[in-house]
């Protein structure tokens, strides 16, 4: 489904600030895979997301979706296959537009945006039904401006908008990191339900070790731009946070450090 071959990316090449963001990364996802990604600060997790979504271009290597070479496609063209939820709850929605208008824009993913009316009554009832699944009462506030919603509500809406057109790949970039624990748990639960129900091929970056182990069928750990550990479904079932920390120390020779790292609940 998603293939990264020998992908490398340098920041500020040839200068004093040169930094290896990704070094020769190989990653292959099968349809329906749900991979969680953990790693310390500057391990290259976000760069990986940005390279897949097309925000950045790799210096070398190639990115394929469903065997299509998408190397040359800009972000907005890749969007027809890739749904994305950002860490910042403000990033995934347009604050001065209404909930239904935001949903209409998400619904138009992969379609030509023409002169037909964005929010029709048929779409509106469909949106209401979809919002109902979130279980947070947004279905009664279709005409409210999204800027009025709380961070948790906006992130739930972002998740719905990113997924309800069934993208081939779903990228979740620490999408619960900016929320309080209760909200984060709600969004995690919604994520799990939606991914499972729609069988979405998902790549989720998280700073929560326990979450990384609990969710998904595969776990990868990154450090200094490389994938240093790849845990398959079977091994992942019995994995503990302590084991994971131990593995990291053994491979990289230092303790795992991330200022936002959460070891467990």
């Amino acid at each position: 489904m998603l293939d990264l071959r020998n992908v490398s990316k340098l920041f500020n090449p040839g200068t004093f600030d040169e930094k290896v963001a990704l070094m020769d990364v190989q990653l292959s996802m099968k349809p329906g895979d749900f991979i969680t990604v953990i790693g310390s600060n500057g391990a290259g997790k976000s760069t990986l997301m940005n390279i897949i979504s097309g925000v950045m271009k790799p210096d070398t290597g190639e990115v394929r979706i469903d065997h299509r070479d998408i190397q040359q496609l800009p972000e907005f063209k890749r969007s027809q296959w890739i749904g994305r939820v950002f860490q910042d709850p403000m990033a995934g929605t347009a604050p001065h537009m209404t909930i239904e208008e935001n949903l209409a824009m998400a619904y138009a993913r992969g379609k030509r945006r023409g002169l037909s009316i964005g929010v029709t009554s048929r779409k509106r009832s469909m949106f209401r039904e979809q919002l109902n699944r979130l279980g947070i009462g947004l279905e009664d506030r279709l005409r409210a401006k999204v800027g009025l919603l709380s961070g948790g509500e906006r992130q739930a809406l972002s998740l719905l908008m990113a997924t309800f057109t069934r993208p081939q790949i779903l990228l979740l970039d620490e999408h619960t990191a900016a929320l309080d624990p209760a909200r984060a748990e709600l969004i995690t639960k919604l994520t799990q339900d939606i991914v499972q129900e729609m069988k979405l091929t998902t790549l989720m970056v998280t700073h929560n070790m326990e979450q990384a182990i609990r969710l998904g069928n595969r776990l990868i750990m990154m450090d200094k731009g490389r994938i240093i550990l790849d845990v398959n479904e079977e091994r992942k079932k019995n994995l503990t946070v302590e084991q994971l920390l131990g593995e990291f120390e053994q491979i990289s020779g230092r303790k795992l450090a991330d200022d936002r790292m959460v070891l467990g609940l």
């Binding site: 979504s53 907005f76 969007s79 890739i82 749904g83 990033a91 929605t93 347009a94 537009m97 138009a108």
Partner: peptide
């Protein structure tokens, strides 16, 4: 309208 409101968001929807 979304281009002026949140360009990153509308790009991520194509």
């Amino acid at each position: 309208r979304a281009t002026g409101d949140n360009a990153r968001m509308i790009r991520s929807f194509g």
